[in-house]
């Protein structure tokens, strides 16, 4: 399979990239790692007139802790950058762990966090844990920057609120009240497998009681979704077995998966409940750390 013909632009600064995009209009696409975009182009699903490559934009790289903003992840950070980040290893190993579960080593060297978000596929592995941790994203255009909760970004499969001319520049995980977080992915083999279901949970626990929790499910609905009833249910409770069984049932009732070649809707519904329960246990018992089994 071959790429269709297109114009290739390689700006050297974000400003230049934004002006280029503004000038090129709807025929242009932003190229970061290319692991999704180039594949779609080769398959004939997309045929943009122009690609604006972000590869030269060092300002979009790097994972740093910024006082007052939290952990700031440049949109061009690759999945392996996230996996091997010392900052994340210290603050949120759960995020590194989600990256580790993605694709294969070769693809993790290319694929970026920005691409993983902007593609807006419901099976993406990074958005659930980032949403669970309350991450915000920054979208830049020639008319300025806007910041929003990642949670509000997705609309439906392959669709988000990003506007023409905008580039996602960074993701920030604010210092927050969560004492623990975890992402559980269910794939059909140990490498190179898309999530049949993925669930991230974050929790603020005091004296064993869950004060606040977020339960975020991937591959469970047309977009990455939270499970508000389950979150409400668990608030004020402990992770006792009976409670968890009830939680599992509530999550199952909240997700809206469909049948696919990776699993029936019924099976995925079950998986969402099971993974939510397991991720919650980890978030309560292991902080942001990684559960021993993984």
């Amino acid at each position: 399979m071959y790429l269709p013909d297109f114009d290739y632009h390689s700006p050297e600064s974000l400003d230049e990239a934004l002006s280029l995009l503004a000038g090129l209009g709807s025929g242009a696409k932003v190229l970061a790692g290319g692991t999704d975009l180039l594949h779609k182009m080769k398959q004939g699903d997309l045929a943009p007139e122009a690609l604006v490559s972000l590869k030269g934009l060092d300002e979009l790289k790097g994972i740093n802790y910024v006082e007052g903003r939290g952990v700031v992840i440049g949109a061009l950070s690759t999945q392996n950058d996230i996996l091997y980040s010392e900052v994340l290893a210290k603050k949120y190993p759960s995020v590194s762990h989600a990256a580790k579960k993605m694709a294969s080593n070769q693809i993790r060297h290319l694929g970026t966090v920005g691409g993983n978000i902007v593609n807006a596929v419901p099976s993406a592995d990074l958005p659930p844990i980032l949403i669970a941790l309350g991450a915000t994203i920054t979208l830049a255009s020639t008319s300025g920057k806007r910041e929003m909760a990642l949670e509000d970004f997705f609309v439906e499969p392959a669709s988000s609120v990003i506007e023409e001319g905008e580039i996602l520049t960074e993701v920030a995980i604010p210092d927050g009240g969560f004492t623990g977080s975890s992402y559980h992915k269910f794939g059909l083999r140990r490498s190179g497998a898309l999530a049949v279901v993925g669930v991230a949970v974050s929790a603020r626990v005091e004296n064993g009681v869950i004060q606040e929790a977020r339960i975020v499910c991937a591959s469970s609905a047309p977009k990455v979704i939270r499970a508000p009833k389950a979150e409400e249910f668990i608030t004020g409770k402990t992770s006792a077995p009976d409670t968890l069984a009830e939680l599992q049932a509530i999550v199952e009732s909240e997700v809206r998966p469909r049948d696919s070649i990776r699993g029936s809707a019924e099976y995925r519904r079950n998986l969402a409940g099971v993974l939510a329960k397991r991720a919650l246990i980890d978030a309560v018992e292991s902080g942001h750390g990684i559960h021993a089994e993984d």
Binding site: R190, S191, G192, A193, L194, I261
Partner: peptide, 12 residues
């Protein structure tokens, strides 16, 4: 394709 026709990987 080898994404959805899943032969084993070394990790499996």
């Amino acid at each position: 394709d080898l994404a959805n026709y899943r032969i084993l990987t070394a990790l499996d």
